[in-house]
Design a protein around this nucleic acid. Sequence first.
DNA 1: CCCTGATTCGC
DNA 2: GCGAATCAGG
Length: 180
Amino acid sequence: MSWTDERVEMLRKLWNDGLSASQVAAEIGAGITRNAVIGKIHRLGLAQRAKTPIAARPRVAKPQRPQQVAAPRMHHGHAPAIVGNVALALAPRALVMPDARPQEEVVIPMSERVTLMELRESMCRWPIGDPTSAEFRFCGARSPGGGGSPYCGYHSQIAYQPVQDRRRARDQLRSAARLA
DNA sequence: CCCTGATTCGC
DNA sequence: GCGAATCAGG
């Protein structure tokens, strides 16, 4: 993939509308990353969006890149923590987050859920919709316990409920067998 | 930790 | 020209 005229146009629009680089990247999709967006912004001379009056960016000392060999990221095992505020997880973000978006709101696209590009390690990975559809999203709610669970409180319950039922049923059978 | 934009430099 | 890796900061 590359910067087609169409994508550049989209980039200009979204960036000028005030979206962050990561948001623009997620919106454009097509494998365009946040870094790609930022890089293009600078090449196009679109940096400094009339925002951040801190024009005097010293940006001193150039640190020589350590040239390190990409260290593999370690992921610790996940213990399914079934906690969290179910009501909060169910509540639309409009209710959870009063209105931290004064004017850019109109620009915030589509669903309030997240796309694959927007999905972060700390977010609920519960899939929503048809995976083959462009409308496919993930729950995106912040999972409880600092990412201990792959799902938010609400979806953790859904995810693990069947297992709990199965174990309960098994235990009941054992009890019955013991009494018999 | 989450995120933001800025910069460098190998490709 | 491109953008991952990295930095500096909120």
